[in-house]
């Protein structure tokens, strides 16, 4: 019974989102909603590796871009539909995650992080020199007609993103509360001790990097249809790396809720700031909030709330 609860929740959320689109409403809501949802997926994905397992990934953009460019290639080559793109993007990005997982054999802590950043730049360079997908200048594509039941493509993408976000969060919830999640926490706390206590550290790390990479890739697959102009500069933007680690850090890294809280807060704030102030200023705010949180509240908002509760209950 308990195990099926998240499934029903995911389904319920998606149906609710669909019904919401039937109400019509402003296009901008779907556009902004997509932006926040996309970051729920990215932050949740980042947290599976960074928060649960303790490996800080600076290369979110590399995985996101793998998803986006897989989708683009499929569009160019076969005019594939979005569900096909998502599955393919999940597979390729998951494979890249598996590769990064083997890096953890030799690289711990800081070196792992720098390697992921390096990966991101190398991939960007390769893609910038790949003429088929538009090289450095990028490529614009035309959205197909919106599928039946949807008034516009924006609404379709919005509902798809709701599904992806709900599914990612459900997965993160499951991992956190499973034996696997406790094994990952042991690795984060002390990898040698975990191995000595019978935790198959390599296998679990590979699981975490693959799942994390896979979800990041999934977040990137609808991107070509969302922006319709795919160019390396925006797909590989450092914003993805900063945001996807800032959001869990601000929300709290040890639970599934943290990244969601962080993504909703920071994502919404950025959308609002972009509209009302300027996009540079909103990024500045992200940076400052991130630094303030890692310094002053390392457990994030979840940690602050927990501490508040503890004090009350005493």
């Amino acid at each position: 019974m308990k195990k099926t609860v998240p499934l029903w929740v995911v389904l319920g959320v998606v149906v609710a989102a669909f019904l919401f689109t039937r109400l019509g409403g402003n296009r901008y809501i779907y556009f902004a909603g997509y932006f926040v949802l996309q970051y729920i997926v990215l932050a949740t994905a980042w947290n599976v590796l960074g928060g649960y397992t303790g490996y800080v990934n600076f290369g979110t953009a590399a995985f996101f871009a793998t998803g986006a460019y897989t989708a683009l290639v499929l569009i160019l080559a076969f005019k594939a539909t979005l569900p096909v793109q998502i599955v393919a993007g999940a597979l390729t990005a998951g494979l890249l995650g598996l590769g990064i997982g083997y890096l953890t054999l030799r690289l711990r802590g800081v070196f792992f992080s720098i390697a992921t950043l390096a990966l991101s730049v190398v991939l960007q360079t390769v893609v910038s020199n790949w003429e088929y997908v538009g090289g450095g200048k990028g490529l614009s594509i035309i959205r197909p007609k919106a599928p039946a039941l949807f008034a516009s493509h924006a609404e379709y993408l919005f509902v798809v993103m709701v599904l992806l976000a709900a599914a990612s969060v459900a997965l993160a919830w499951w991992v956190q509360n499973s034996r696997v999640g406790r094994g990952l926490a042991a690795i984060r706390d002390n990898e040698e001790a975990a191995e000595c206590m019978g935790v198959p550290t390599l296998r679990l790390k590979l699981f975490a990097t693959t799942l994390s990479g896979c979800l990041m890739g999934v977040a990137g697959t609808p991107f070509p249809y969302y922006v319709t102009l795919v160019e390396p500069g925006s797909v590989f933007s450092l914003d993805y790396a900063v945001n996807s680690l800032a959001m869990p850090m601000i929300g709290g890294t040890t639970t599934w809720v943290g990244p969601v809280i962080g993504a909703v807060l920071l994502g919404t704030a950025q959308q609002v700031a972009t509209v009302t102030i300027s996009s540079e200023l909103n990024l500045l705010i992200v940076g400052i909030v991130l630094v303030a949180f890692v310094m002053l509240a390392p457990q994030g908002i979840v940690g602050l709330v927990q501490r508040l509760f503890h004090r009350r209950s005493r």
Binding site: A241, V242, L245, M249, L283, G287, L290, V294
Partner: peptide, 8 residues
């Protein structure tokens, strides 16, 4: 992460 934020 702190320095990453400072960089940004």
């Amino acid at each position: 992460v702190f320095f990453f934020g400072v960089l940004f």
